[in-house]
Every structure is written in structure tokens, then in C-alpha cells.
Design a protein around this nucleic acid. Structure first.
Length: 897
RNA sequence: AGGCGGUUAGCUCAGUUGGUAGAGCGUCUGCCUUACAAGCAGAAUGUCACUGGUUCGAGUCCUGUACUGCCUACCA
């Protein structure tokens, strides 16, 4: 028989079995629903560590709900990820020699869908390898016809309600993708750059100058003012003066505005309203002209007048040379500043004034903030509320730019006429009707639909409603909505979580009517980021993420799941321990954490092997077995309380570690050793039956975390009828346990550990049976009164007998609780070592007793402390004194030898 | 600049209403003992960052400091 558990074969077998049986399918019925919607991964994405963490957590929660008898429904799907996917398709076409600008929108979409059909869904198959128990029949896609319909519907609805408007605003422009971006899609990072000090001549003078400071000399051509602080003594004489812009010679005013910081650079600032957010504000305040000197692709436009058609970064180099040649450069300094780059394309973002569609956020964000602040939606960990609040408070909220100059996405349902009229409607026909309602006489061919599409998040914010077709099917929505929990990374708290809450409050009420909850989920579980050993966020671009599939192949899905979850407290980043190859600097597909998971699978599988290979005999259980059964049942009941409480508060890593300890330490190392028959001997039937029953319960408990190995073990523990599978077994009911009894077993373990230590030190094998003597005392009498416990000590300690004695015993001794134990064997004891050990223990105990004595002699403690705490301290004190006496006697005895 | 975290064993981290600290890994010792060497048995290890306070009592609550991570904004 194999010594090692083989995860690969077994996992595949069981996943197929589960799906064939349809265990993951969910339809509304009389049971209580437990629903989760997956954070849809990018349709063309591949599984990475973040997904694994995220989806394992969701699977754990869903599987447990299923075991608890709820109607568990986990809805999978993918996101069309407009900008990311479009960027990929553009690149793919470029490789084939096709330029996006050369093909039509329809042709482009054809290619894009080809790409989607080819690569879309890979990630869903990978989730299956991980064991994700999604209802695959419900798989959705954010750009499928139905979901797109809903997007258009809500766009029109928001427009009707007056929340959506079109306006000329400063937006973030991605010159690579040639689209606007929302603020959230721009990432600022510190980069090395230069600070240029450039002097502008004051108009009407021969040799008077103002020196401004800039990081972007190429925008000089768009300057329409120079600004200084009104209190700046250096520039007071310039009131009413003008300066001449270098290169193009435009004459522009000097303006005074408190926005300027006197201490920075030269205290003078060039103002380019078209290309900087703050400059734009200045421009508005001082009614300055705004000159857009860039084309959409980042080259200079005709309006720049110079360097037309050159790329902005080439222009920066060239214009510096030219300024230098003309004597305008005063200084160039090295400087670090934060540069905004497009999250998707990495291009440096260009702030520009553009006509875009915006969604007013004032009302929506207030609703979303209230929902979390009043506890309607709960965050785990709860301190995430602070981050959320900070983002959503009114002064930080800006209107959401929802239009994107892309093709891959839902096209904005706005229709324009040549003479400047516009209507927003779900279809062109409706738009035509609206336009003609007030006496217009337009024909269908006169209308042109807006070229832009909506932001991806404008479709994903509907996800919890849309996946249940809530806009048309109220029954499913009523049953599954609100979903129980959303599991996602905190990095998309604003992109997505907040916006789903907004959408819920905006539409769920209308759809469901009075009396139904409108929030999209009860709880939000924020996972941390997965980082590498240098604490960098794992990402594809850094190449510092291990290959998820290879990890699964190496350690089994169970192993990887265990590894990730055992160190993933909610909200905490997890440092994944995959090592780097020192030579190649490449990350290896190895992990100690996952190895532990694999080892755990193996341990369980071996325990199963032991239990199933026993011969059985019809007989009464021995005292030891009766004791062992009583103990493990109560131990399980005790653990179950912590496990359930842990689940309810999403302490998933604590729960799995508790389970490991229960199964490995208590069940395997203690219980199985207690009931294990001697080699070649059979086990009595009641004990075997009971053991299998307990084993099954443990498999059910662990199943959410390690679904495959538990199913495998479940299947071989006994003959099974069809449909009797671990995945649909019943979560164990709790039961009573006697804390005092459990405590006495812990003490028994302590006695046995001491025995083992003595054996280890004296090289005594287990074959050598020892006699144990216990010094007579009330507690010793009580402790050993349990015949089962006594028999267990004899069995596991490899003892010949245990005797309570009042006589002096000359043998190796140890303390457990307040009793003194002696082990008799024929080898010499090492006196010095023994004395040193006792002295050390005495020292510790004396300090311990003194500190407790101080506490108890403190009247305030005795008066104010809780009675049970005080009582406990008294017990500790008297036990301490008793122990000290025993040790002191022992020490005296040894010293006097 | 504003906000939020973190600082506990060599490493990664738990520590849920305040009662002198835990796990796993790693290290060390002894074992290929018939379920398991992916294992078994045992051992060692801490001024709980620093400071002041509240309290009978502080890793835990409050003040401040240092270091560190992240988020948001600004940095011409």
C-alpha cells in the first residue's frame, strides 16, 4: 500500500463526482439561502495567488453553509475588464500587423470576442482545480447581452433621475489606450525626474526676468499665465505686468494667487490650465485661456504651434535643448515626484479637459456611507470602516467619470443629431421618439450613437443584482438577495464594494418593494494582499508570483488551501513564503506553508489507513477504550464551540489551526494511540464503530477547508450508499462536555509527557515496563480514582503498575499538578542534574508564589477583584506552596545522599 | 499634510470583554517502533518597541515618542 497520499488523482475524481451529482447547483426552495457572488475575475485572466486566497475563503464559507443544511449558492462569472482586455486585443492585433485605427468598431469587436472565447473561462477551469464549489450553471459574464441590457437600463434611469450629466471637465487621459480614466484607475508612484528653472522675460523690459519652476517644460507652449503668491515680497513689483513665453513668444499675465507656495522652487509657477488640475482651477479663478497642446495619442497638436506631431517626451528633451540655446534655462535639478500612470497600460496619464459623462456621487455616496456606518453592512475586520469613511466623506467625493473612449464595453445610450440635439434612451427608436416628441422631425439615419462605452465598474456594480437577473426576475432576487457575504481585497473597496452598495440602495428597493433588504450583502470580508518575501505585492508584471497551478499540482489543492488559510487573518496581508532562486532571481513554485497542508492531508489519510485496517472482534470495550471515547467525544464538543464561534466572526485561520490541533494532536496522537490495539490484535466492535463515527465528524468539520482529502477518507471509512458524501454530510451538532474532566485529561497528558521525558533522558525503550509510585495525597487519590484514566496512563506510559504510597521512595521523580510521581527503574540517576532541575523549578515557583501572595495580601484586589478570580488565585497559592514543599523535601533528600 | 494599520520566540504570526504569554516553522536531542520520516517522542527560546498614565493588576485601555507599512491629497 502507498505510504503517501496522492492528491492529484483523488482530487480530479472527486470534483467530477460532485459536479455529476449536481451538489453545487442551487435553486430557490424552502431552505434558508446562503449566497455569495464571486468577484468576477478578468475574462482573459489566469489564476494568481490573490484569486486562490479569495476564492478559497469563499469556498470555505459556502461549503460550511451547505453542511449546515442551507441552500448554498455561489455564483461564478467573469468581468469583461474593458480597458485591460481592449489593451490586450490591441496588442494582439498589432502583432498580427493590424492597427486598431484601420478597422471598424464591429471588426474590432469580432476580434475581441474571438479572443474572449479562446481565453475566457480558463480561469474558471482553474477555479475548479482549486475545488471551488460554484454553481457553474449560473456562470455569468458582465458583457453578455442580458447584463449589458441592465447596464443600459440603469444608465437611462440615472439620466432620467438627473444623476448623469455630460460635461467638460479635467479628466485623466491615457494616451496609450486613448481613453479617459477614473481617478481610481490612476496610480501615483514616486519617480526620478528633473526640476527645471526657466526664466521668462517681463514684457516691455530689456533684461528683467521671472524664473518659474516646472517639471514639465513641454507644456510651456500651453502657458496662459505665470502665478506668484500675493504676499511674496520678491514679486510685489510685478503687479499688472506681463511676461513673454519662451519659444512661442506669447504674452501672458502675471497673476497673484495664494495657492502658490512661496517656499517651493522660485516661488513662481507657470500656469497651463489645459494640462494640470490645479492650473485649471487657477485658470477658472482668473479667467485664463485654456490651450490644449496635445493630441489624443500624446503628441503635440496644431494648437501647440511648435513641435507639432512629436511625442510629448521627445518634446521635453528637445525643448530643454532649445530653451538652453536661447538662454532661458537657469538651473536643472534632480527631483523625485509622483507620476500618475494608467493602472492598465502603464502610460503616464495626461490631465486634460474633455467632454465626458459623469455620475453625480453626492447622494449615492451618502447612502453608501450610511449603510456601513449604521451597521447595515458589516466589515471584517471592522477597522476597514475607517478607510471607507475617509474615502466616502463628502469633501473627498468627486463625480464619477463613467465614459471611456473604448470599444470593448457597453456603448453609451446617448444619441445625437447633427444639429446638436441629444437624447438618452435604451434604443435608437426610443431616442428618436423622444427627439421628435417636441415637434422634431428626425429620421433614424439622422441619429448617431455616442462612440464611448461605460467604465467596467459601471457594469460590475450591478453584479449582485444582475447575476440573479433581478431587473426582471424578482423571485430569484427575493430568495438570494441580499447575499450573505462578499469576499474581496480591500484594494477595490472604492472601485467596487462602495459602488455595489450604492447600486443596491438605488435599485434593489425599487425592484423588491417594501420590506425587503436593499443592501447587496450583509458582510464584507476583506482579504489582505498576497505579498512575496520582500513584501512586494505579487503581480504579473513583477513576475514574483508562483504559478498557482503548479503549486496545486505539487501540494494538492487541499495543501495549497490549507497553506494559504492557515496564515490569513481577515484584512492582514499574507506573506507567501515561496523562495526566490538566488541565481535567476525567479520565484520558485515552492512553499513551506503549502507543504504543511500537504503533510496534513497525508496525516489524515494515514490515520484512515490505520482505522480501516484493524481487525474487529465482538467484545466489550476495555476501560481504556471507554475512557478514550468519553474523552474524545467531549473534546470534540468543546472544540465545536470554538469552531462555530470562529466561523461566525470570520476567524478562518484560527479555526483551521484549531482543527489541525484537534485532528492531529487530540485525535491522532492521543485518541488513536489510546484505542490502538496491540500489534496483530483486533479491536472491539463498539470502539471501532465509535471511532469511525468520530472520524467522520472530523472530516465534515474539516471539509470546507480541505474538501478532497476529507471526501476521500469519508468514502473509505465505511460502505456508503449513493449520495452519502462528505460534501453533503451534516455539520455535527454540539454536545455537552465536562470542563473538569477535560482538565483532568490534560493533567494526565502532563504525567505521560513527564514519563516520556524520563525515558528519553535515560534511554529507556518502551519495551521496558516501569513501575510508577505516587506520593499519597488527597489530590492523588482523587486523580487516580478514575480507573479508565489510570489504565490509560499505564497503557500509554508503558507501565507495569501505578501505586499510591505513603512511604519514602528513592527514585526519579517529577511533579504534575500538586502530586509527586516516581518512576522506578534500575539505572543510576544523575544527582547533579536532578538537583539543578529541582532548584530551577523551585526558583520559578517561589517567584510565582510571592507574586500571588502580594496580590492576595492587597486588600483592594480581594475586595474589587471578581470572586472567581480571587478564588482561583487562592487555589494557585496553596497549590504553589504544596509543590514547593514536595520539591524542597525532594531536594533535601538528594542533597543529603 | 491628513487617515488607517503594525511593532510579541531566530522566522511568520495568534492572543475576543485587563488576571505575569501561545501556534507553526526553524534549531537541538533521541528514534526508519508494522498508519504516517510528508512521521514519532522530547528539549530550549521572550524587559510583549519605548514613555507616562488609569488600575489591586496592562501584551491587552488612555497620552506621547520612535521605527515601519499602507491609503488619500499635494508637491509647480
Amino acid at each position: 500500500m502507498d505510504k503517501h497520499y496522492n492528491a492529484q488523482e483523488i482530487e480530479k475524481k472527486w470534483y467530477n463526482h460532485w459536479t455529476e451529482k449536481g451538489y453545487f447547483r442551487s435553486k430557490p426552495d424552502g431552505r434558508k439561502a446562503y449566497s455569495i457572488v464571486i468577484p468576477p475575475p478578468n475574462v482573459t485572466g489566469v489564476l494568481h495567488m490573490g484569486h486562490m486566497l479569495n476564492n478559497t475563503i469563499q469556498d470555505v464559507l459556502i461549503r460550511r453553509a451547505r453542511l449546515l443544511g442551507m441552500n448554498a449558492c455561489w455564483v461564478p462569472g467573469t468581468d469583461h475588464a474593458s480597458i485591460a482586455t481592449e489593451a490586450k486585443v490591441v496588442q494582439l492585433l498589432r502583432e498580427r500587423g493590424i492597427k486598431k485605427s484601420d478597422i471598424s468598431r464591429d471588426e474590432f469587436l469580432k476580434y475581441a470576442f474571438e479572443w474572449k472565447d479562446k481565453y475566457g473561462g480558463i480561469i474558471l477551469d482553474q477555479l475548479k482545480m482549486l475545488g471551488a464549489s460554484c454553481d457553474w450553471d449560473r456562470t455569468r459574464f458582465t458583457m453578455e447581452p442580458k447584463l449589458s441590457e441592465y447596464v443600459i437600463k440603469v444608465f437611462v434611469d440615472l439620466h432620467k433621475k438627473g444623476h448623469i450629466y455630460r460635461g467638460l471637465r479635467m479628466i485623466n487621459w491615457d494616451p496609450e489606450a486613448k481613453t479617459a480614466l477614473s481617478n481610481e484607475e490612476v496610480q501615483f508612484h514616486e519617480e526620478d525626474s528633473k526640476l527645471y528653472k526657466v526664466r521668462y522675460k517681463i514684457a516691455g523690459t530689456e533684461d528683467e526676468w521671472v524664473t518659474i519652476t516646472t517639471t514639465r517644460p513641454e507644456t510651456i507652449l500651453g502657458d496662459t499665465a505665470v502665478a506668484v503668491h500675493p504676499d511674496d515680497e520678491r514679486y510685489k513689483h510685478l503687479i499688472g505686468k506681463q511676461v513673454i513665453v519662451p519659444i512661442n513668444g506669447r504674452v501672458i499675465p502675471i497673476i497673484f494667487d495664494a495657492y502658490v507656495e512661496m517656499e517651493f522652487g522660485t516661488g513662481a509657477l507657470k500656469v497651463t490650465p489645459a494640462h494640470d488640475l490645479n492650473d485649471n482651477d487657477l485658470g477658472v479663478r482668473h479667467k485664463l485661456q485654456s490651450i490644449d497642446i496635445f493630441n489624443d495619442n500624446g503628441t503635440l497638436s496644431d494648437l501647440a504651434g511648435f513641435y507639432v506631431g512629436m511625442d510629448r517626451f521627445d518634446v521635453r528633451k528637445q525643448i530643454v535643448r532649445d530653451l538652453k540655446a536661447q538662454g532661458h534655462i537657469v538651473a536643472i535639478e534632480n527631483y523625485k515626484n509622483k507620476v500618475g500612470r494608467s493602472e492598465r497600460t502603464g502610460a503616464v496619464v495626461e490631465p486634460r479637459l474633455k467632454e465626458q459623462w459623469f455620475l453625480k456621487m453626492e447622494k449615492l455616496s451618502a447612502m453608501a456611507l450610511a449603510a456601513v456606518e449604521n451597521g447595515d453592512v458589516n466589515f471584517f475586520p471592522d477597522h476597514m470602516v475607517n478607510m471607507y469613511r475617509n474615502w466616502l466623506k463628502p469633501e473627498n467625493v468627486r463625480d464619477w467619470c463613467v465614459s471611456r473612449q473604448l470599444w470593448w464595453g457597453q456603448q453609451i445610450p446617448a444619441y445625437y443629431t447633427k444639429d446638436g440635439n441629444m437624447a438618452v434612451a435604451e434604443t435608437a427608436e426610443e431616442a428618436l421618439a423622444i427627439l421628435n416628441r417636441d415637434g422634431g422631425n428626425y429620421k433614424a439615419e439622422d441619429l448617431k450613437q455616442d462612440e464611448d462605452v461605460v467604465d467596467t465598474w459601471f457594469s460590475s456594480w450591478l453584479w449582485p443584482i444582475a447575476v440573479f437577473d433581478g431587473f426582471e426576475n424578482k423571485e430569484e432576487l427575493k430568495y438570494y438577495y441580499p447575499t450573505n457575504v462578499l469576499v474581496t481585497g480591500w484594494d477595490i473597496m472604492f472601485f467596487w464594494v462602495a459602488r455595489m452598495i450604492m447600486a443596491g440602495y438605488e435599485w434593489a428597493g425599487e425592484l423588491l418593494g417594501e420590506g425587503h433588504e436593499v443592501k447587496p450583502f450583509n458582510d464584507v470580508y476583506f482579504t489582505g494582499m498576497v505579498r512575496d518575501s520582500y513584501r512586494r505585492k505579487m503581480s504579473k508584471s513583477l513576475g514574483n508570483s508562483p504559478d498557482a497551478i503548479e503549486l496545486i499540482q505539487k501540494y494538492g489543492a487541499d495543501g495549497v488551501r490549507y497553506g494559504m488559510l492557515s496564515c490569513a487573518a481577515a484584512g492582514n496581508d499574507i506573506v507567501f513564503d515561496a523562495p526566490f532562486d538566488q541565481k535567476t532571481k525567479k520565484i520558485l513554485n515552492e512553499s513551506k506553508m503549502c507543504e504543511l497542508g500537504r503533510n496534513f492531508s497525508n496525516k489524515i489519510w494515514n490515520a484512515q489507513k490505520l482505522v480501516t485496517m484493524w481487525q474487529v472482534v465482538d467484545a466489550e470495550p476495555s476501560a481504556v477504550n471507554r475512557f478514550a471515547m468519553k474523552w474524545i467525544e467531549q473534546k470534540l464538543n468543546e472544540s465545536l464551540e470554538t469552531i462555530n464561534a470562529g466561523f461566525d466572526s470570520y476567524r478562518l485561520s484560527e479555526v483551521v489551526m484549531g482543527m489541525r490541533s484537534l485532528i492531529w494532536d487530540d485525535f491522532c496522537s492521543w485518541y488513536l494511540e489510546m484505542v490502538k490495539p496491540a500489534f496483530g490484535q483486533p479491536i472491539d466492535r463498539p470502539t471501532l464503530e465509535f471511532t469511525i463515527g468520530i472520524f467522520e465528524k472530523m472530516m465534515t468539520l474539516l471539509h470546507p477547508y480541505m474538501p478532497f482529502v476529507t471526501e476521500e477518507v469519508w468514502s473509505v471509512l465505511r460502505e456508503r450508499a449513493a449520495g452519502d458524501d462528505c460534501v453533503v454530510s451534516k455539520w455535527p451538532e454540539g454536545g455537552a462536555f465536562d470542563a473538569k474532566f477535560l482538565q483532568s485529561v490534560e493533567k494526565m497528558k502532563e504525567v505521560l509527557q513527564n514519563c516520556r521525558e524520563v525515558r528519553a533522558k535515560n534511554q529507556l525503550t518502551e519495551k521496558e515496563l516501569l513501575k510508577m509510585m505516587v506520593k499519597d495525597s488527597e489530590s492523588a487519590q482523587n486523580f487516580l480514582a478514575d480507573e479508565g484514566l489510570k489504565a490509560t496512563i499505564i497503557k500509554l506510559g508503558y507501565l507495569e503498575s501505578i501505586t499510591i504510597t505513603a512511604e519514602e521512595v528513592d527514585a526519579t521523580s517529577f511533579l504534575a499538578g500538586t502530586e509527586q510521581y516516581f518512576l522506578l527503574f534500575h539505572k543510576e540517576v544523575n544527582l547533579e542534574e536532578e538537583i539543578a532541575k529541582i532548584r530551577k523549578e523551585l526558583e520559578y515557583l517561589q517567584g510565582f508564589v510571592i507574586s500571588i501572595g502580594n496580590k492576595l495580601s492587597n486588600e483592594k484586589f480581594v475586595q474589587n477583584g471578581k470572586p472567581e478570580v480571587v478564588e482561583n488565585e487562592r487555589k494557585k497559592l496553596s497549590d504553589g506552596h504544596a509543590k514547593i514543599k514536595l520539591l524542597q523535601d525532594e531536594l533535601d533528600k538528594l542533597v543529603n545522599v
